[in-house]
Design a protein around this nucleic acid. Structure first.
Length: 472
DNA sequence: TGAAATGTTGGGGCG
DNA sequence: ACGCCCCAACATTTC
């Protein structure tokens, strides 16, 4: 039974290759339309009108539209509330069904439920597909049918279950239907401004994704395990933004990771599936600890310390360099995400939710599932989180992962002249040397806003409440 | 996907 | 030669 018309609604899957919903629509319908909605329910909540993500999406849509036009179709780009725009467009086009790739965020699930309901009332179908994850829903479960909450057994089950079918490319050949529009709205027309993506060398769209992917395969992939922890080195893939917006297919990456036996990198891709699954099954992690006991922790109210953390002025060079990196380019090396998260929660005693929100507002690759998972991991409140007594020493981390201070000096230029021996803890530099080098701690660079050894003791005390329920 | 505290061992200085 | 002590170096435990 072939249907006449279908509509593919693109969201975080901005490509026309290996695309599950597009593939299914093409297989099912004679005429396939394509749309994207700049959803004001999302855009209105963004803190700035200069948002690199909106810019990235817009630039990627321009390329996607061009690709669809080469196939006889086009991208119908709307600006409004998706829960109203999609049913209205479906009605206008006279489609029998709307096709989407599944999204696991609570807000997206609520939106999709509302759209589905609206469509259903008009007899229009709403078909959802797994595309952004390798496994979703209940596909990877423990022996008794529960979702995994520990990564390693999840990973083992994930690998055991994996077959070639799970990694097969979704074919998307075939003609597309064209719907006359006034053309793609400009960035300004949807209320946003151009950003510095080009200056930062952030390539958009499928072509940008492919270029980065080639760079990674020709470069660090083979030595990923050895290089990935060193922020001064190009040792990681820089593909996170492309996975976030679907300008690259996850199946292609997993296939290659398996082919070259890049186990450490494959693990990272499995972590991504893991956190999608956790968010899907445990939506309370948005705003609450995965482990309820951890919501009894009394976090410190320290607005001035939080401001110093945000600005990269804590007096701990690696922490400051990392925060200045996110402030400068909207991206931070993964090792440093752990370091600054540990510092915020366990050195400053500040609620992980504040850090989570800061990352949400600043990361170009921000993804609710992984960001929340990572912060709760660092705060020890999450599933398979590090134990609360495992506290990073910001100086030791610096010595291990930026041994010569190359990364520090790149982002904290006022420390450029500090000798290697003191670059990780410059307050140890003798006063006379500080004067001679023109790097006086407290004048040219902040004194540490907290003493790590003391903070560690206070954190262990703060976390005592999770050990056992408060006595009656 | 830690780090600090504590325990153990063994080489070397020294009386 | 021997015991004693110091203290790296390494291992284990504790948080």
């Amino acid at each position: 039974m072939s249907m006449e018309k279908a509509l593919v609604w693109f969201r975080r899957d901005l490509r026309d290759e290996d695309h599950a919903a597009l593939s299914a629509a093409l297989a099912a319908a004679r005429q396939v339309y394509c749309t994207f909605v700049f959803d004001t329910d999302i855009l209105d909540a963004l803190p700035s009108r200069h948002d690199r993500r909106v810019h990235f999406i817009h630039a990627s849509l321009v390329e996607l539209d061009r690709a669809l036009q080469q196939r006889g179709g086009n991208l119908i780009v709307l600006h409004g509330r998706a829960i109203e725009e999609i049913p209205a467009l479906a009605r206008t086009l006279g489609v029998q069904a709307v096709y989407v790739n599944r999204d696991y965020e609570p807000g997206a699930k609520a939106r999709d439920a509302a759209v589905s309901q609206a469509l259903l009332s008009e007899g229009i179908g709403f078909r959802t597909f797994k595309d952004q994850a390798i496994f979703d829903g209940g596909e990877v479960r423990t022996g008794n049918g529960a979702p995994y909450t520990v990564f390693t057994p999840y990973k083992n089950a994930w690998l055991k279950r994996l077959t070639a079918t799970d990694l097969a490319t979704w074919p998307t050949q075939g003609p597309l239907a064209h719907f006359p529009t006034a053309g793609m709205p400009t960035l300004q027309a949807i209320g946003f401004e151009e950003t510095d993506l080009a200056t930062l060398g952030i390539a958009t769209g499928m072509q940008g994704a492919e270029a980065r992917w080639k760079d990674f395969q020709n470069g660090p992939l083979a030595r990923y395990k050895a290089l990935r922890d060193f922020p001064a080195i190009r040792g990681v893939s820089y593909l996170s933004v492309h996975l976030r917006f679907g300008t690259l297919s996850i199946r292609k990456l997993v296939n290659q990771a398996l082919a070259v036996q890049a186990d450490a990198w494959l693990n990272e891709l499995i972590w991504r599936d893991f956190y999608f699954m956790i968010l899907d099954h445990f939506p309370h992690v948005v705003g609450q600890s995965f482990r309820p006991a951890y919501d009894a922790i009394r976090w410190a109210e320290r607005p001035e310390a939080f401001a110093a953390w945000c600005a990269g002025k804590t007096g701990y060079p690696l922490v400051d360099a990392a925060m200045r990196q996110i402030n400068h380019c909207g991206w931070m090396h993964n090792r440093l995400r752990m370091v600054v998260a540990s510092f915020l929660t366990k050195d400053l005693g500040i609620d992980w939710r504040l850090g989570e929100r800061y990352f949400a507002d600043h990361l170009i690759d921000y993804d609710l599932s992984a960001n929340n998972g990572g912060w709760q991991w660092a705060a020890s409140s999450g599933c398979d989180a590090q134990p609360y007594f495992r506290i990073f020493n910001p100086v030791t981390q610096s010595e291990k992962f930026d041994p010569e201070g190359r990364f520090i000096r790149r982002y904290v230029p006022e420390l450029a002249k500090v000798p290697d021996r003191y670059i990780h803890a410059p307050w140890g530099l003798p006063k006379g040397e500080q004067e001679r080098l023109g790097v006086v701690i407290g004048r040219d660079y902040p004194a540490p806003i907290v003493d790590h050894a003391q903070a560690r003791v206070e954190t262990l005390a703060r976390y005592e409440v999770v050990r056992k329920p408060a006595s009656p």
